[in-house]
Amino acid sequence: MHLKNKTFLAINTLLSMGSGLITPIMTLYIHNDLHKSLVTAGYVLLLYSGMIAVGYLVGGRLFDTWKQAPLVYIGGSVAVLFLLLLALLPKWPLLVFFLALYGAGQGLWRSAFSGYMAVIQDGDQDIFNNNYWTSNIGMGVATLLAGYLYSVSVHLVFATTAVLFVGGLVIFARYFKVPRPSTEVSGIDVDLPGKRLPSRMQPRSIAILCAFMFLTCISYEQWESNLSVMMTAQGIPVQKYSLLFTVATGQVIIFQPLLNKIFPHHPWVERFRLMFGLFLYGLSFLLVIGAHEYWRFVVGIVVLTTGEILVTPTIPLLLSKYSDRQHRGFTQSLGSLSNTLGIALGPVVGGYLITLTGYQHAFVALFALQMVMVLLVLALQKTGQPEPK
């Protein structure tokens, strides 16, 4: 597999590893070590996700209207500073304050890199797929390390994350070459030979794609939260539930590189990829309705992950194509914000739905939701077409 823009991908992999070290252990630490309720832990993580979202929005706007490289240094420095404070003083209530500001710094940095990725995409159509692949490798490594580091000391978790982020900043400063748009005249997009670029923003299509990102995250979070209750109620041990996500990570690492060979970069192919992926998201829920056998959950997670492989890198790719050069950073931050909100609200929304209707009806409703989204793909405009007046 040939990877372009290796420096960019290496930095984003370090970012993903850092995020993956902290998230899995925070609920355990707040509940088991600080002796706070699970509800309190949930609110702390909601605040953390909210501050990442704020960082994304502010950073996306600054990326388009201010300076881009300083945004990376500011966001990275804020994140490292509060990671070091977390490593020194992970006590209540300072932890809440430090974690929130770490999230804001992380959001600023990630928004800058989302903007860079949208610019890089002009010369590297595979950047979103490759970034998704390398990020999953980083998350997979981090998931393996998180439990070990936490068993030694929570201080070590925060300190290791700080080291990873410092490494990312050093690589950025020494090796990263800031991408520049191919051609631009007075801030107006110019069509290049062989390329068809959007003449201006297409808000309707951007809104639809952000809704897709939010709702697919809501759906995926049911597997990461409420499915565990359903499985353990069937007598399936927690270890087997955790193994599902090891299978999912391995599936992404093995099969993601094949995506570009199976689905080449053509507008109709990208739409088909999105529609098929959304259908698989919904199908995964139908497969586990009334399930008692573990193999059915394995089949469900494989189908879900196949849908994720198709959908997750396609949405930011299309967001880039539906944006113009002056708003690429902000457009990507809207997609990232939708992702963050879906992750934050998914367990709550799913919990209410399952409580009101039961697992079977909730899963049918989630399947129906995905089918509505499949139809909404048809409402997306052709890339390169202006918004009708």
Rank of each mutant, 00 (worst) to 15 (best):
Y322H: 07
S323A: 15
Y359S: 07
F330R: 12
A362N: 09
L337D: 00
L345A: 14
L317V: 02
Y322G: 01
T312P: 06
L341D: 06
L317C: 08
S338H: 09
G329N: 07
L341W: 02
G350V: 13
L317A: 15
Q326W: 09
I343R: 13
Q360H: 11
L353M: 15
L353I: 10
S338V: 05
L334S: 01
T357M: 12
F330D: 09
G351N: 01
L356P: 06
S323F: 08
Y352M: 04
A362F: 04
L334N: 02
G350K: 12
G350A: 09
L318H: 08
T355F: 14
L318F: 08
L318V: 04
L334H: 04
D324H: 14
Q360K: 14
G350Q: 11
H361E: 10
Q332I: 01
R328Q: 15
I315F: 05
T331V: 15
Q332A: 10
L334V: 00
F363G: 04
T314R: 01
L341Q: 08
Q360C: 02
L345F: 15
L334I: 05
L341Y: 02
T340R: 03
F330V: 09
K321H: 15
G342H: 06
T314G: 01
V349E: 02
I354Q: 12
Q326N: 15
S323W: 06
A362G: 14
D324V: 07
G335N: 14
D324K: 05
Y322V: 03
G335R: 01
Y359L: 11
T340S: 14
Y359C: 01
K321W: 07
V349D: 12
N339H: 13
G342R: 04
I315D: 02
V348F: 10
Q326T: 15
L334D: 00
S323R: 06
A344Y: 00
T357R: 11
S333R: 07
F363K: 06
H327E: 14
P313Y: 09
G329A: 11
T314L: 06
S338W: 06
K321P: 03
L317G: 13
N339S: 09
P316S: 08
G329F: 13
L337S: 00
D324I: 04
N339Y: 15
